[in-house]
Design a protein around this nucleic acid. Structure first.
Lengths: 125, 125
DNA sequence: ATATTAATGAGAATAGTTCCCATTACTGAT
DNA sequence: ATCAGTAATGGGAACTATTCTCATTAATAT
């Protein structure tokens, strides 16, 4: 199981299921979910919740994500070096903060083109 | 519909359904979803995706969230005044960033107590 | 009043995930 | 190697949240 963990980018349980199936053709989706859940509770992998299906991330380095609101693509973003995210204020009484995550939203180049209806193109950054 | 938008904290579609029902007893859940979706696409409300069900937030002021990993409670956190979140780096080519969101994770006071006194140390539930 | 368009209720359909349980695999002691 | 006890698995049913469909109703403009 753990082999797959570090395999890909941000696979869904289904994608992982397909991957693992290549080596263990008799594995069931339930088992994949169970183990993914276990690994994430053990802190070996992270989960990315969000629109659509849960995704799993084997990269434990602190990093953030950017998600295309249109196609759902998720890419990694390096945290700015100067950030001290603990600076949020107004936490509820007694709350123990164990982590945080930043997610950018927007639109990836591809979807931007698609949306610029007609055969418009031309992108720059 | 829009009346409800600013009503509560971070209700789910179901909770909103129950709320609206009090005034419009014949409304259907489908309609609630439809209008919630519309409002959020129009930018009148925000959505909070995450573990469990989608939640809606009528507060458009920039603010962040903190979520209890145990019970799922979501509270608001004021952004630290000094943050410039644009500082993330490594965005994919051509990506247009339209927003971002910070979510802290941890455990609320209540769940902390439950876990502490329950004699369970590492088990998750 | 009528034609056109938009929104609705009701429920079916779908997607993603969790749950159940009989079977299988693993473990350690004999 | 055998057996008992425990843990993990496959298969599928059950569940939850959300979306979709479509006949009906409301709204709007003419």
């Amino acid at each position: 199981m753990e082999e797959v963990r570090r395999a890909d980018n941000h696979p869904t349980a289904d994608e992982i299921y397909e991957l693992v199936r290549r080596r263990l053709p008799r594995i069931s989706l339930g088992t994949v979910y169970r183990n993914l859940d276990r690994l994430s509770r053990e802190g070996v992998i992270r989960t990315i919740e969000g629109a659509g299906s849960r995704r799993y991330d084997g990269d434990l380095e602190e990093h953030w994500h950017v998600r295309c609101a249109d196609c759902g693509l998720i890419s990694d973003v390096k945290p700015g070096a100067d950030l001290n995210l603990k600076s949020g204020t107004g936490f509820p009484e007694g709350f123990l903060v164990t982590g945080w995550h930043v997610e950018y939203r927007g639109m990836c180049g591809e979807c931007k083109e698609k949306q610029g209806s007609g055969a418009r193109s031309q992108e720059s950054e």
